[in-house]
Deep mutational scan, measured.
Amino acid sequence: HYVEVNGKKIQATSAEEAEKIAKKFAKIYNATVLDLGNYYKVT
Score class of each variant (00 low, 15 high):
38 N>S: 13
24 K>A: 14
18 A>T: 00
36 L>T: 04
37 G>C: 09
23 K>T: 09
5 V>K: 01
18 A>V: 02
24 K>R: 14
2 Y>N: 01
43 T>Y: 13
11 Q>F: 15
29 Y>P: 04
17 E>C: 13
1 H>G: 03
31 A>E: 02
42 V>Q: 03
18 A>D: 00
33 V>C: 11
35 D>K: 15
34 L>V: 13
41 K>L: 14
13 T>N: 13
40 Y>I: 08
23 K>H: 12
27 K>A: 13
10 I>F: 11
30 N>G: 14
7 G>I: 02
36 L>I: 05
14 S>L: 04
14 S>D: 07
17 E>D: 10
30 N>R: 10
2 Y>T: 04
17 E>N: 08
27 K>I: 12
19 E>H: 14
8 K>Y: 15
26 A>Y: 05
33 V>H: 02
23 K>N: 11
32 T>S: 10
34 L>M: 10
6 N>G: 10
38 N>R: 10
37 G>W: 07
33 V>A: 05
42 V>A: 03
7 G>Q: 03
26 A>M: 07
11 Q>E: 09
31 A>V: 09
43 T>A: 09
26 A>N: 02
11 Q>H: 14
6 N>P: 02
6 N>A: 08
16 E>S: 11
35 D>N: 14
24 K>S: 11
32 T>A: 09
35 D>M: 13
21 I>E: 01
2 Y>C: 09
30 N>L: 07
26 A>E: 05
38 N>I: 10
21 I>V: 06
41 K>T: 07
18 A>Q: 01
30 N>M: 08
21 I>D: 00
15 A>E: 05
38 N>F: 12
35 D>W: 15
4 E>A: 04
31 A>R: 04
4 E>N: 04
11 Q>M: 15
8 K>E: 09
10 I>K: 02
18 A>C: 07
41 K>F: 09
25 F>P: 00
6 N>E: 05
27 K>R: 12
18 A>G: 01
1 H>Q: 05
37 G>R: 01
25 F>Q: 02
20 K>F: 11
1 H>Y: 15
1 H>P: 10
2 Y>R: 02
32 T>M: 11
20 K>S: 11
26 A>F: 05
14 S>H: 03
2 Y>H: 04
41 K>Y: 09
40 Y>V: 04
36 L>P: 00
8 K>M: 13
39 Y>L: 06
25 F>E: 00
1 H>K: 12
14 S>A: 02
5 V>E: 00
19 E>P: 00
9 K>D: 01
14 S>M: 04
37 G>V: 07
36 L>G: 05
2 Y>F: 09
22 A>I: 03
40 Y>A: 02
29 Y>H: 08
19 E>A: 12
4 E>Q: 07
25 F>R: 00
20 K>P: 00
16 E>I: 11
25 F>L: 13
13 T>D: 12
37 G>M: 05
9 K>S: 05
29 Y>N: 04
33 V>W: 08
19 E>T: 06
24 K>C: 15
3 V>F: 02
20 K>Q: 12
34 L>K: 07
1 H>L: 08
21 I>T: 04
42 V>C: 09
17 E>I: 08
7 G>E: 03
18 A>N: 01
29 Y>F: 12
9 K>P: 04
35 D>I: 14
20 K>D: 08
6 N>T: 04
8 K>G: 05
23 K>W: 14
40 Y>P: 02
10 I>R: 03
39 Y>D: 04
32 T>W: 10
38 N>D: 11
24 K>W: 15
34 L>C: 11
12 A>H: 02
14 S>I: 04
2 Y>A: 03
16 E>V: 10
2 Y>K: 04
23 K>I: 12
28 I>F: 13
25 F>T: 00
2 Y>V: 06
11 Q>A: 12
39 Y>F: 09
20 K>V: 09
22 A>G: 01
40 Y>K: 04
8 K>D: 06
16 E>F: 10
32 T>R: 09
15 A>Q: 14
11 Q>K: 12
11 Q>R: 14
37 G>D: 07
10 I>N: 00
15 A>D: 05
12 A>C: 15
41 K>H: 06
10 I>C: 13
12 A>M: 08
35 D>S: 09
35 D>H: 15
13 T>H: 12
4 E>G: 01
10 I>P: 00
36 L>S: 04
2 Y>L: 03
29 Y>E: 03
33 V>G: 01
27 K>Y: 12
9 K>A: 06
16 E>P: 06
15 A>W: 12
11 Q>L: 14
43 T>G: 08
8 K>F: 14
20 K>N: 10
14 S>T: 10
25 F>M: 09
37 G>N: 05
7 G>F: 05
39 Y>V: 07
2 Y>Q: 02
34 L>P: 01
27 K>Q: 12
23 K>D: 06
42 V>D: 03
1 H>R: 07
30 N>D: 07
22 A>S: 03
20 K>W: 13
22 A>F: 05
19 E>L: 15
6 N>Q: 08
41 K>P: 02
27 K>E: 10
17 E>P: 00
1 H>S: 09
5 V>M: 07
32 T>F: 11
24 K>H: 15
31 A>W: 11
21 I>S: 01
7 G>S: 04
16 E>A: 13
9 K>G: 02
9 K>Q: 08
1 H>D: 02
28 I>K: 12
19 E>R: 14
40 Y>R: 01
31 A>D: 01
10 I>D: 02
14 S>N: 10
28 I>L: 14
9 K>H: 09
36 L>D: 03
32 T>K: 10
7 G>C: 12
35 D>C: 14
39 Y>G: 09
30 N>E: 05
23 K>F: 12
4 E>V: 12
23 K>E: 08
6 N>M: 14
28 I>P: 02
14 S>E: 01
5 V>C: 10
27 K>T: 10
21 I>A: 02
12 A>S: 05
25 F>W: 13
24 K>G: 08
43 T>V: 15
41 K>W: 06
15 A>V: 10
34 L>G: 02
43 T>F: 13
36 L>V: 06
38 N>C: 13
39 Y>E: 03
3 V>D: 00
22 A>P: 00
5 V>R: 01
42 V>I: 10
4 E>R: 04
